[in-house]
Amino acid sequence: MVVTLNSLSAILTLMLVAVAALGVFNGVLLDTRERVREIGVYKALGMTPRQTIAMVLASVVLTGVVAGALGVPLGVTLHGWVFPAMGESAGLRLPDSVIAVYHAAELLPLAFGGLLIAAVGALLPAGWAARARTATALRTE
Rank of each mutant, 00 (worst) to 15 (best):
G91V: 09
L92A: 14
L92H: 14
R93P: 01
R93H: 05
L94V: 14
D96A: 15
D96V: 15
D96E: 14
S97W: 12
V98K: 09
V98P: 01
I99R: 14
I99L: 14
A100M: 15
A100G: 12
A100L: 13
A100S: 15
Y102G: 04
Y102L: 14
E106Q: 15
E106F: 03
L107A: 06
L107M: 15
L107S: 11
L107W: 11
L108G: 11
L108D: 10
P109V: 09
P109R: 09
L110N: 11
L110E: 06
A111H: 08
A111S: 13
F112P: 03
F112Q: 07
G114F: 08
G114M: 08
L115C: 04
L115I: 05
L116M: 13
L116K: 02
I117A: 13
I117C: 03
I117R: 04
I117M: 15
A118H: 02
A118S: 10
A118P: 01
A118E: 06
V120L: 15
V120M: 13
G121H: 02
G121P: 04
A122F: 04
A122W: 02
L123N: 00
L123I: 00
L123T: 01
L123Y: 00
L124M: 12
L124S: 03
L124H: 13
L124R: 07
P125E: 05
A126D: 03
A126L: 02
G127P: 02
A129R: 00
A130L: 07
R131Y: 02
A132C: 04
A132H: 03
R133T: 09
R133L: 07
T134C: 04
T134M: 02
T134G: 04
T134V: 12
T134H: 07
A135N: 07
T136E: 12
